[in-house]
Design a protein around this nucleic acid. Sequence first.
DNA 1: AAATAAATTTAGACAAGTCTAAATTTATTA
DNA 2: TAATAAATTTAGACTTGTCTAAATTTATTT
Lengths: 216, 216
Amino acid sequence: MNTLAEENYLKSIYHLSLNAENVSTNQLAAFINTKASSVTDMLKKLADKGLINYTPYQGVTLSKAGEKIAVNIIRKHRLWEYFLVEKLDFKWDEVHEMAEEMEHISSNELIDRLDKFMGYPKHDPHGDPIPDCNGLFKIHNLKPVSAIGVHEGGVICGVRDHSPAFLQYLEKQSLIIGKKITVKEINEFDRSVILQTAGKELQISREVANNLLIAL
Amino acid sequence: MNTLAEENYLKSIYHLSLNAENVSTNQLAAFINTKASSVTDMLKKLADKGLINYTPYQGVTLSKAGEKIAVNIIRKHRLWEYFLVEKLDFKWDEVHEMAEEMEHISSNELIDRLDKFMGYPKHDPHGDPIPDCNGLFKIHNLKPVSAIGVHEGGVICGVRDHSPAFLQYLEKQSLIIGKKITVKEINEFDRSVILQTAGKELQISREVANNLLIAL
DNA sequence: AAATAAATTTAGACAAGTCTAAATTTATTA
DNA sequence: TAATAAATTTAGACTTGTCTAAATTTATTT
């Protein structure tokens, strides 16, 4: 088995790999909230274990083995988030920190049974896909609201920013997963967006539009 | 907050305190599966934190603060065991190791909601009492089967030995929590006990009788 | 392409928790 | 009660994961 720190590094490399081919030492340091020198030490260790592909000064990618572990941690994280929201009635902005601890509970049998208990959910409370017990999941092809034009629209299916502050804001505006929205107007001045939702009209900033994901 | 190691020491001291006033360094070392010198180091640390009462060479007891933490960990352990058995269909001999990890999930809000979700159970799958959110619970007054005489009996309400091997044996013999039994005969030679249970007669060794707890 | 800046790694140190071996204290026994 | 045994603590070392400061490599700029 791997240590807590190792698991967190693998998970972080996985997340950062979605936006860049190679993940750099500094990127990782910023993401994990640690120093670059600490990252270098850990990268050596993970490379020795065969979990990453690491060339000094050139950044890292996950190996097949490393990716498998990372996806499994993400599966656990998202299933526990689903559990916390659907079974224990937590709000979607309250569960991240708890799931951050729970994702390291080691038993796979446990997580598979939890999956079954909840009816094999496909998405977590933030719309992120939950890998199945084989690590398979569809990366759904979502667009930020900021990427579509006037009179276009779709269904809210995810968020880019997972911070409690952003999630609380969305909830207050009823901009929740499953909601249908249409772009009514884009303000030329600040590129803020006026949305048409069920019954109501609503203005959101460019910042918000960038972080709100929809399926067309 | 306290580290994983600190929590495990406090929990262990609590458990050992049930059988002896002062817990000795060697007792702890054996229980935690570590060396006496490591125990001494940790005891100093816990004493500095005010969680135990420690006099060198004289063993330890928990302070009020330490006991509160220990009971909270035990509450978490037992609630997670209940969850694993009642919601995820694990058997009573399969859950200890998993709960050993889960008891360290820090959120109290989480455990209180889990408690509510399950309907505030009073006992874990092995019959041990679950402390409530204030740390209160009844230490029920159980006797081992070996302590009662012929024609006496009661209801199985707990076990002393929590090892999978023992629990599996009991399950195979249908000696499970809630079962009514009566002592029919005690073999003079090896002090093994013949039990009368619903319909069946059953012989158990002294060893088993010592570890099977009943309420009269 | 040389000089400077940015990114990364190396060297050496530290805290937590553990270990072995030696020293000390307490308990037992002759 | 002195000698021996058992229990406990101290001293010093090791591992993991972190840090700061210095050295090195890569990227950028003039």
